[in-house]
Design a protein around this nucleic acid. Structure first.
Length: 427
RNA sequence: GUGGCUGUAGCUCAGCUGGUUAGAGCGCCGGUCUGUGGAACCGGAGGUCGCGGGUUCGUAUCCCGUCAGCCACCCCA
């Protein structure tokens, strides 16, 4: 080990073969978003700290203890993006996008949160998410959910479930909050320490407590359902109807509350049973007041964020690690003259097909070269040595079928064409 | 921020209660083998035993600290 410097805590290097899985997923994400009519947004890695304080909420854990904040040389407080929604809204406002009507936007990229790492949780992680602005109706909620659901379906992931809830709006949440306070306060002494702390600040959060001693009080707590105002009740019913129309299976979980302040009405989570304690794969909801609170028009919006690392963990768990199919061709040259002959042929191949063409430049025995071809996962080997040079016939070996055939060594272009032809263009 | 477990070769790990030059398997490189691979056999390279301090005649082994990884709490993607 030449260097003792390692990747910072809670971060990870993305190296082969894992990087290929990421490329595949990102390609699928871009294609999927396009089919739903969503366009990509990329924002700076860091923003004015104030954006997150106002957008995410001063009393959230993210703002209180998880932000990577620094002062730049101009004395400004900056923060590494801990979530995407506030920056996307900021960008949309800054470029007057919302004045052009409803917007469908998506993003893929890193977020940073200063937390103690554990399974499925890192200091730098990556999210794919969407934001749909300008629609008050629950069709938009269902659209956003179905977009995320499609990605999960496309990967054939099992053991995931969608849970939805409504946390009301500014007109009905205070009433529910009050009811919760009245329910928990008389028993405050019997609640966990954590619960006692939450009760005044955010009583909704008591509902997702995992403490044994809290559970019996949580179980008997009033349901938000009974306190929703008429509009929120209708919105929730409409969401359910739309999910049914789209044939997306879900369950209602009145304990989902979410930790970010900006949510209104719809909240939802997709969780998996293979992720350990951090089981949320994808979470989101409606935020009808956020845009206005960031200085924009009074405009509704809904969105979600999906954890890329967690998603790939679930993919790996449900499909195992299947051996990658063989692809490409290994050019094997025995001797300097053979190398000179094969080099331009490899060049032509790389122009003619999108399949990898491998070549090793060391002087090795045929056996060693074949082992390298094997390691590269090549489907074919094109072998040229002194015999082939003399006869003008290269050997093309199918490494899967273990069969040989001969190809005349003509011009590089002709050989490349013949290879494409001989291998059906798929190599 | 709190707690538990773990740091020995590129990887997975062994090394008992401290005792001479720190081991295995896999991988890598070479040979058997200029001519047909995933094999076998033989050989080789590769280690400040995470880092620092302490105890001791002597520590990979015991103690303290520290850093990192894993898992859980909190919270979230």
């Amino acid at each position: 080990m030449a260097s003792k410097i390692t990747a910072p805590r809670g971060t990870q290097d993305l190296i082969p073969p894992h990087s290929a899985r990421w490329q595949e997923l990102e390609a699928k994400i871009h294609a999927l978003a396009r089919r739903f009519g969503y366009a990509e947004v990329r924002t700076p890695l860091f923003e004015a700290t104030e954006l997150f304080v106002r957008g995410v909420g001063e009393t959230t854990d993210i703002v209180e203890k998880e932000m990577y904040t620094f002062t730049d040389k101009g004395g400004r407080s900056m923060t590494l993006r801990p979530e995407w929604t506030a920056p996307v809204v900021r960008a949309a406002l800054e470029h007057q996008m919302l004045a052009r009507g409803p917007q469908r936007l998506y993003y893929v990229g890193p977020i940073f949160r200063y937390e103690r790492p554990q399974k499925g949780r890192y200091r730098q992680s990556h999210q794919f998410g969407v934001e749909c602005t300008g629609y008050r109706g629950a069709e938009a909620d269902a659209e956003v959910i179905s977009l995320g659901w499609e990605l999960i379906r496309a990967y054939g992931i099992e053991g995931v479930s969608l849970r939805i809830n409504s946390i009301g709006d500014a007109s009905c949440r205070p009433r529910y909050r009050q009811a919760l306070l009245e329910h928990f306060r008389p028993n405050i002494a019997q609640l966990s320490e954590e619960a006692q702390r939450r009760i005044e600040r955010n009583p909704l959060r008591l509902l997702d407590s995992k403490e044994e001693r809290d559970l019996r009080f949580v179980a008997s707590a009033p349901h938000f359902e009974d306190f929703l105002c008429e509009e929120c009740r209708e919105h929730f019913a409409s969401l359910r109807a739309n999910l049914d129309l789209l044939e997306i299976p879900y369950s209602i979980d009145w304990r989902i509350v979410r930790g970010l302040d900006y949510y209104t009405r719809t909240v939802f989570e997709v969780s998996s049973n293979v992720l350990g304690a951090q089981s949320t794969l994808c979470g989101g909801g409606r935020y009808d007041d956020l845009i206005a609170s960031l200085g924009g028009p009074n405009m509704p919006a809904v969105g979600f964020a999906l954890g890329i690392e967690r998603f790939l963990m679930v993919v790996e768990a449900s499909r195992g690690s299947a051996a990658a199919p063989r692809a490409g061709i290994q050019a094997i040259a025995l001797g300097a003259q053979a190398r000179a002959t094969l080099l331009p042929i490899v060049g032509e191949l790389r122009r003619a097909t999108e399949i990898p063409a491998f070549m090793d430049y060391e002087e090795r025995k045929l056996l060693a070269h074949l082992k390298i071809a094997d390691r590269n996962g090549a489907r074919f080997a094109l072998i040229v040595g002194s015999e082939e040079l003399a006869s003008g016939q290269a050997v093309l070996r199918d490494l899967e079928g273990r069969t040989d055939r001969r190809l005349p060594l003509l011009s590089p272009k002709d050989v490349a064409d013949a290879l494409v032809e001989a291998t059906g263009g798929s190599l």
